[in-house]
Design a protein around this nucleic acid. Structure first.
Lengths: 199, 199, 199, 199
DNA sequence: TCCTAAGCGAGACGGTACGTCTTGTCTTCCA
DNA sequence: TGGAAGACAAGACGTACCGTCTCGCTTAGGA
C-alpha cells in the first residue's frame, strides 16, 4: 500500500515531460511560427515520444493553452503586486496595470512573441492570446464605459493592444516599453475617463 | 487585366467557374467556418472538379483573397461615391467613410460574417480581413496621428474595428448599423482630431 | 534485415500487413492484370489504409519486387534441393534444374501467371519476371557458351523461356509441365552442349 | 473519316502534322524512353496543340503503332527484295531474311532502339515491337517445327531475337550487324533444320 | 471573290492516381 | 505501470496526366 507517496515521483516526472514539451513548443514558435509546427516536431525537440505527447495533451492547442494560462497568472500576479505596492495611494493614474508587465515580457522574449502574435503566427495562438488579454483588460476596466457595453469595450481595447504589440514586436528600432505602455493608455483614455467621474 | 477581347468566351467560362467557387466558399464559411472546409468540399458545393479548382487558385487561401479583394474594391467604390456625393462641402464630420458601408454589408450578410470573423473562423480569414480593413483605414487616415506612427495607428483602429464587428455580429439584439458606425467613429476620435488642426 | 529480436511483435504485425498486401496484389493481378490496378485497389482488397501501404513500400513496383524475390528464393531452394537429391550422380542430363519447378508453379497458379506474364500484364511485371529468370538461368549456365557472351546467352534463354511460358499459360489444352520443361531444355541444347566438352 | 478526295491539301496538312508527331515521339523515346513521355511533351516538341494530337490519335500508343507498322512494312519490303535478288537460287542458307535488315536498322538508329527496347523502354513498346518481330518470324518459319507448335516456335525465336537485340544495342563495343545476324541464325538453327528435310 | 469546311492552337473541364504529410488511436515492449 | 516506439486508419494536400470539349483563328478549295 505504499502507493500514494510513489505517485509524487511520477507526477514530478510528468511535470518534467510537460515542461520539456512546453519549452520545445516555445522554441519552435520562435523559430518558425505556430502553423509550421507539427506535433511530431515538438516531440522530437523535446526528446519525447509522440504517443506520450497525446497522453498529456489532446492537442497542439492544449499545450499552448496551458502555457498561456501560466503566463496570464504570472501577469495578474505582477499587476496585483504593483497595485499592492502603491497600496491605493495614487493608483496608477488612469492606466492599465497589466500593460507594462506584458509589454516588458514581450520585450524580453521578443522572438517568441514574434512567432506568437506576429506575421507568421497562426489563428489559434492569436485567438488564445487575445482572449487572455481580454480577460486582463476586463479585470481593470471600470464598470461604466459610456455607451459601449462593457464586453465590447474590453474587446476593443484588447484587440487594439494586441495589434499594437504585434506591430511593436516586429519593429527594428522599437519604442521603449514604457512609452508603448503610455501610448496604449493614452489611446485607451476615452474608455477610461468614466472611471473617475468626479475628478 | 485579361484585356484582349480575343477569347472572350473562355474568360467568361472561367469567370463563371470562379464565381461558383467563390459562392460555394462563402456558403460553406457561413455554415462551418473556414477551418473545417476542405478544397474538396468547396468543389462539390460548386459542382466543379478538384483539379479545375487548382487550375484557378493555388490554394484555399487564394480563393478567399480573391473574394476579399472584390469586397475591398466595392467598399472603396462606395466610400468614394459617398465622398463625391457630399462633394467636399461638409466632408463627413470626423468619421471614416468606409465604416458604415462595411457594417451594413456585414449586417446584410450576418451569417457569412459570423463565419468569417466570428468565433468559428480561422486565422487566415481573420488575418486577411484585418489586412483589408487596415488598407481601408489607411486610406482615410490623416497624415499626422500625434505621437503614434501612421501604420501603428491604422492597425490599432483596424483591429479595434474588426473586433467590434466580430462582437456585434454575434449579438442577438445588435445595435443598428448606423449606431455602431457612430460608436466606432467616436472611439476613433482621439486619432482623428489631428485631422483638422484649424477647426 | 530487421534482425534485432527486441520488438518481435511489431515485426510480426508488419509482416502480416505485408502478407495481406502481397496476397491482394496477386489476386488483383490475376483478375485484371497489373496495369489496371491502383494502389488504392490493393489496399481495399487487403483491408489496409493507403498511407499504411506507403509506409511499407514506396511503390506498387516495390510490392511486386518483394514478392518476386520470395519466389526466386523459393525456386532456387527447390533447384538446390533437387541437385542435392541426385548428389552429383546423374546430374539432370543437360537440363536447367529451375525450369520444371517454375513451370509447375506456373501450372498451379495458372491464373496469376496469366495476369503476370500473359497478355494483360504490364511492362514492369514482365520485366521484373524476366530479370528473375535471367538470374535463375545465369546460375546454371555453363561458363563457356561458344561464341555468344555469357550474359547474352542467359538473356536469350530467359527471354525464350518466359515467352514460352507466357504462350503455354494461355493455352486451353496445355502440354504437361514435364513436357514443356523438356521442350525448353531441348531448345536450349545448343547453348548447353559446351557443358560437357568430353561427351 | 477523311473519305472525300476533295481536299488533298488538307490531307497533306494532316500528314505533315502526323509526321511531326511521329518524329517528335521518336526523338523523345531516344532521349528519355517511352514511359517518361507525356502526350503533352510530344506535342510541345512537335509544335502542335494537344487537342490536335487527340484528333489524330486516340493514344500515345496509337502513335507508336502507326510508326511500327511503317517500320514493319519497310522491313518486309527489304526482305522481299532480298529474296527476289537471290531469286530462289541459293535461298539464304538456313537464315531468316528479315534479321539482317532489322539489325542494320537498329544499328543505324541505335539511340532510338535503345529507347524502344532497351532498359528505359516501356511495356507497350516492347510488346508492340515483339509482336512485329513475331509476325516477321512467322512469315519465314517453315511449316513443321518438330514437336513445338508453330506459334510457340515463332514466339520463342522472336522473344530471343528481341532480347538479343536489346542486349546488343546497349553494348559499348557491339559486334558487327552481320555477325549478330549470324549468331541469331545459329541459335535458331534447331528450329530451322526441319526446313529442308530432304537435303 | 467570297464562303465554307477543315485543320489547328489554346485551354477549360472533370476525373483518377499519385506520393506526401499530419492527426489521433492503439498495441507492444522496456525499464 | 508509465513512457518510448511505432503500426495503423483516415483523410487532405498539391501535382501530373488523361481524354473530352468548346471556342475562335486560319487557310485552301469550290461557288
Amino acid at each position: 500500500m505504499t502507493q500514494l507517496p510513489l505517485n509524487a515521483a511520477l507526477d514530478r516526472r510528468s511535470a518534467r515531460t510537460r515542461e520539456a514539451l512546453r519549452g520545445a513548443l516555445v522554441d519552435l514558435i520562435a523559430e518558425r511560427g505556430w502553423d509550421d509546427i507539427a506535433v511530431q516536431d515538438v516531440c522530437e525537440r523535446a526528446n519525447i515520444g509522440r504517443s506520450t505527447f497525446y497522453s498529456h495533451y489532446p492537442n497542439k492547442d492544449a499545450l499552448l493553452v496551458g502555457g498561456l494560462e501560466d503566463l496570464q497568472a504570472e501577469l495578474q500576479r505582477q499587476a496585483q503586486a504593483q497595485a499592492d505596492r502603491s497600496h491605493g495611494v495614487i493608483d496608477t493614474p488612469g492606466g492599465f496595470r497589466f500593460a507594462l508587465g506584458l509589454i516588458e515580457h514581450a520585450h524580453e522574449q521578443r522572438k517568441i512573441f514574434r512567432g506568437m502574435i506576429g506575421r507568421r503566427s497562426g489563428y489559434v495562438v492569436q485567438q488564445r492570446f487575445r482572449e487572455m488579454v481580454i480577460r486582463l483588460v476586463s479585470e481593470e476596466l471600470p464598470a461604466s464605459t459610456d455607451g459601449l457595453p462593457r464586453q465590447a469595450a474590453a474587446r476593443w481595447l484588447a484587440a487594439g493592444f494586441v495589434e499594437l504589440l504585434s506591430w511593436w514586436v516586429e519593429q527594428r528600432a522599437p519604442l521603449p516599453p514604457a512609452e508603448l505602455a503610455a501610448l496604449f493608455n493614452q489611446l485607451a483614455q476615452p474608455l477610461l475617463q468614466a472611471r473617475r467621474p468626479s475628478s
